[in-house]
Design a protein around this nucleic acid. Sequence first.
DNA 1: TGTTAGCACTCATTCCGGTCGAGTGCTAAC
DNA 2: GTTAGCACTCGACCGGAATGAGTGCTAACA
Lengths: 343, 343
Amino acid sequence: MELDERKIRILTAIIQNYQETGEPVGSRTISRSTDLSLSSATIRNEMADLEEMGLIVQPHTSAGRIPTDKGYRLYVDRMMADQKREVTEMKDFFVERVDRVELYLRQMAKMLAANTNYATMITGPTYNQTKLKFIQLSRVDANKLLAVVVVEGNIIKNTMLDLVREVTEEELLSLNLLLNTKLNGLTMQEINLGLIKDLESQAGIHADVIREVLDAVADAIRVDEDMQVYTSGATNIFKYPELTGGDTAQSLISTLEDKRELRELVQGKLSETVPGEGIQVYIGEEMPMTSMRDCSVVTATYDLGDGMRGTIGIIGPKRMDYEKVVGTLQSVMSQLDGAFKEK
Amino acid sequence: MELDERKIRILTAIIQNYQETGEPVGSRTISRSTDLSLSSATIRNEMADLEEMGLIVQPHTSAGRIPTDKGYRLYVDRMMADQKREVTEMKDFFVERVDRVELYLRQMAKMLAANTNYATMITGPTYNQTKLKFIQLSRVDANKLLAVVVVEGNIIKNTMLDLVREVTEEELLSLNLLLNTKLNGLTMQEINLGLIKDLESQAGIHADVIREVLDAVADAIRVDEDMQVYTSGATNIFKYPELTGGDTAQSLISTLEDKRELRELVQGKLSETVPGEGIQVYIGEEMPMTSMRDCSVVTATYDLGDGMRGTIGIIGPKRMDYEKVVGTLQSVMSQLDGAFKEK
DNA sequence: TGTTAGCACTCATTCCGGTCGAGTGCTAAC
DNA sequence: GTTAGCACTCGACCGGAATGAGTGCTAACA
């Protein structure tokens, strides 16, 4: 079966109409709304073809047609290919510049949800490739040290560590000096066993302490476990009747609330993301999570500079306004790009 | 109208039955379920009295009765007066001891939600009365300082500050020493203008810098703005049909998601909480927020020691199991009590 | 060969009337 | 004061008729 220009225009018309109304769209509607000036009967013939091709279905006999996942996929792919997409302007897009990434991302999620009317999620950046900038050990109690670690982008992390062995004031001082001179500017990957051995021998204090300190440092900038996920606008999904029927709404909100699952998803996806464009669309069954089988998810990877990358996701019904969402995400990307980079 | 023992037993029976089923309860049901051995007709007479007193209503003619807010209030007040309440044991109540209060509270909220099947919220502690324990200024960049503030309970806060004026290494060293000796052990309230003047004169460096640093310290331990609120189990409300009808579920979840409103509520409530027992019950209309008009909220104030107090709230339908909830909260309170105190 | 008008058909939705049953209020008897 | 009996109310449920949007198919038309 040939997929000619007219069929595509009809498919597009169906998708766009369904996007607005959420109702199955009939042949008459298409016949009037498009500028093809074809009668409903002709449209019906074409629609029969489109259905045969698996791009649209009717939810029940004698109802209008709605697009299938495959239909959306075709539409989205064509849309993504059109590079002449204009960046949609955003209302109220003013996020105050703060030094806390966390707050920034939280606001960003909120803003995105308000602008798109979909649910949003945004993950904190991973620090994989990030360079250490500053390490400071301070005595807080007799046998309690506070380790403060600053990485590039001025992200601050800290942990408290209980010492098994006493450390003198002088040892602490030299340890601080040693750590800063040796580790500064290195990424986590670059701190290998050889370097650790090297440090241990040079420290002049017991190896246990060094080991403990390094563990704390690693702990402070650990990525997997406490990668934060911020969500917003979960209740937006109530705006789409096709998601509120049954318990899809409930399970969806559950997934958004319990961030663990989202985190795993993102970590799985992130690794396979192509570094290029970065914006990806997952439609219905393409999502691994069952709770999102009735949704589409658009993700984008942001880069705060210095290899600190995270993911933004927009979760909505399959009939979401892909064009707007992709545009919005691109505009956000450009805002985020290097937002925390040194000026 | 006299409220004798028998009426109270009937009211209690109605409330408890309604608690389980969520359906209006009829006279026959009461007649069989209680050990009063009265016929349904007698119960009907009593129920008519109870209705006249405004303790129960029928949702429509010829339906069973359900308790009113006033009825619940009576029930709860009597229950709270019974001090011989046994502490309900909790399943899976093992929160790993962590040094991060945040994580701890988050887990706590989750655990509570899982145990009670209601939605829960828990606020981070306020630091009003908290004493400073340790201050550390470190140079990160040429004109960027990192201020790390540790308060009692080993809560760590930090901010980055940009200096308008250069500070030498020696100045930094003496500043650290000065700050620690002068401010250690003081609460925020105790750092007044006289003390600041004193510091400025002793510092031997420009007053601007002192001012900037103190602002940063104040900023780091500021309480109002970024008091965190952790919620969990929001989707539990889907388990109660009377909350899912209409858009109450939606607006409820919205309120839980958008923590701002909760924060304001808690801040309002907290101030008027009597320091004694601490557990309070708000039924239906007693809540200031319209989105919670169909709910009851049970709150408790916890004390981590050193005056770090916060609030735990459990949000459920009016027919929530007050007895269990109050018991659970009390058990949690005893766990939390001084959990972060130095041993 | 592509397009269109007409027509019969399908099927979800809505409305309506009837039945059912749980529950009540009232009265009279115990 | 308690209970049995009875009429009454009203929501819930069910089945059928009416409605209407939308389709597929066929035949006519350009």
